[in-house]
Design a protein around this nucleic acid. Sequence first.
DNA 1: AGGCCTTGATAAAACGTTTTATTGTACGGT
DNA 2: ACCGTACAATAAAACGTTTTATCAAGGCCT
Lengths: 348, 348
Amino acid sequence: MSRNHAPSIRMVAARAGVSVATVSNALNGKPTVSPAIVERVNAAVRELGYVVDIAASRLRSRKALLAGVVVPDLTNPMFATFVSTLEHAARGDGYDLVVVSARNSAAEEADRLANIRAWRPAGLIVIPCDGAFAERLPTGFAIPTVLADRIPDQAGFDLIAVDNGPSAGAVARHLDEQGYRDCLVIVSKLSITNVRERWEGVQAAARHMKLDVVEVGIDDPDGLVSVHKRLSSKPRPQSIFCLDHGTALLVYRLLAEMNISVPNDLAFASFDEMEWMRLTSPGVTAVRQPVEVMAEQAWSLLSRRLKGDAGDAVTRRLKCAVEIRGSTPRCPEPQQRGTGQTEMGGVT
Amino acid sequence: MSRNHAPSIRMVAARAGVSVATVSNALNGKPTVSPAIVERVNAAVRELGYVVDIAASRLRSRKALLAGVVVPDLTNPMFATFVSTLEHAARGDGYDLVVVSARNSAAEEADRLANIRAWRPAGLIVIPCDGAFAERLPTGFAIPTVLADRIPDQAGFDLIAVDNGPSAGAVARHLDEQGYRDCLVIVSKLSITNVRERWEGVQAAARHMKLDVVEVGIDDPDGLVSVHKRLSSKPRPQSIFCLDHGTALLVYRLLAEMNISVPNDLAFASFDEMEWMRLTSPGVTAVRQPVEVMAEQAWSLLSRRLKGDAGDAVTRRLKCAVEIRGSTPRCPEPQQRGTGQTEMGGVT
DNA sequence: AGGCCTTGATAAAACGTTTTATTGTACGGT
DNA sequence: ACCGTACAATAAAACGTTTTATCAAGGCCT
């Protein structure tokens, strides 16, 4: 019994009655093959259901139509969208993607990077876990690399990110102008470069607001406890601005549990817009990042590099959309605070 | 100048002063290599930063530690979680994953399947776009394949899915018992097998409720228009049950826009729980699917197959959790309908 | 001492491709 | 009829591995 192996180019050659080299030439569109033979080869390919072995092909030709993608967490809808868009763009150029998730762990990221190397991709697109990405890049792994979304401590990388500072600043200014005089800023980890940029943007933009910042680790209950304490004490903060969607979700739930009404008792805004922020009543003011654009630009930049462009490292900052919704209305006068005045909340 | 190629096993051999075969044996833990030489080899590997070329390895050894994964849409948080969990499990067994998204198109799914074949994976895990999956599987692509989540028309596949019918039925029965006498069931496409199962489950479980079903294609505005019409006409349906999260989102927004209050004006429930359903006030009654468990079981089943288990095709149905929340309270008496009686909605 | 294992290492073949160099073959120009 | 060229097809080498078969060197037994 012939084993159940996938048909090889040899079988195609035999079936078409030509040499192996000719089959290869025919399939790769080399002009030195006569049309009649091309047709014979194609017929044999169809009949056998032959599909090239990419690995063998790459091995010999030294051309890899393959790029690696590393994201911190596929579960995050933003990164999932990033990957999905990227995949589409890459396939449009004939490239395959090997995608791995670091599950928010720098150690796993390093591991995955080493592992992805074994695939000999032509290029890399990485959303790093944190700024220390350069240290985790295996030595000697010198292929075109484009970073996205998160900002590395070390310069010299191509980078496509959003203008975290100005966008977060725009929200802070909005709160300021609406009359709020203090704001509790909540972050997951200030060590994440984006988050730090946002926080700095807020600090730069707030003119009359007193600012306060709390770290709420994603799985760490302590942070939430301290937010709880902060919200129970008098006077309560007039506004809250969460600098990433994870904390936004946690804090928004906390508010509901504590029976604190948005926006009657305080205003609420978030960086990183999520679907649900348009569904609550009122909607949540949020910064929407242009993920798809980011993915497309990351690919087109990598694509340029793969074609041989060896120019200086590029950094591009994309503009975010700031969606003002009912969760940040004009600040009521102090004496009226907490007595009603519901904005007839709505989906915008 | 020596080109910038990744170091090969040959260089390692030269550096360690042994033969290529010995390096291979050492790295693969063959017992015939003396400890002293193993150490020399490891040192050389470290110094050069050598990483095996998986493709070449697989080519020669005919052992692929690689599985393909095809999902309908990575953007869907449920599938993203599925992939993420799967990846973790696979890596635990030393396997890599090549993940592709069909972007909800059967044509793309077929294309991706053909393409993934070029990687010669050892196995396949697929969440098919629709029931006609078998037709799109390239002929001769006979590797262990586990289907997940969606049910194929054709039998003979390993399958890990949830008990769509009973779970949807549980929600229908709940509505029925709460006193609702009719229910508008909303689906994306009845051609999706899961959705059909859910719909059949609803039909089987509803005892006193009059049922009505509307298809709302994900990108198709017509469906929403007909829902709108249905909601404007008198008498308005007493309850709505969306059988997938995409339509749940659309319809929930539509309700807000039409100023129809949940649950004052009607009850609302959904299959496919999403984050935001715990955040609205009141929370949305929903069926939560055990995605992680599904992924783990899919992997462990595939893993078994890869180890050679050639038993009959297995079908496993996982139980879902039904989360009863404030959006489906006891049905008020008809004369009171729409006059207030807000459940002090809360996050559960 | 001679024969036979065992041990540790290696040379060479093989995997499925692509590429390079080679071989015919036909053609047009003298 | 001869040469040079262009064209079509191919044989063989190469890519980086793993595997198989081979080999050399001891050690043990008679």
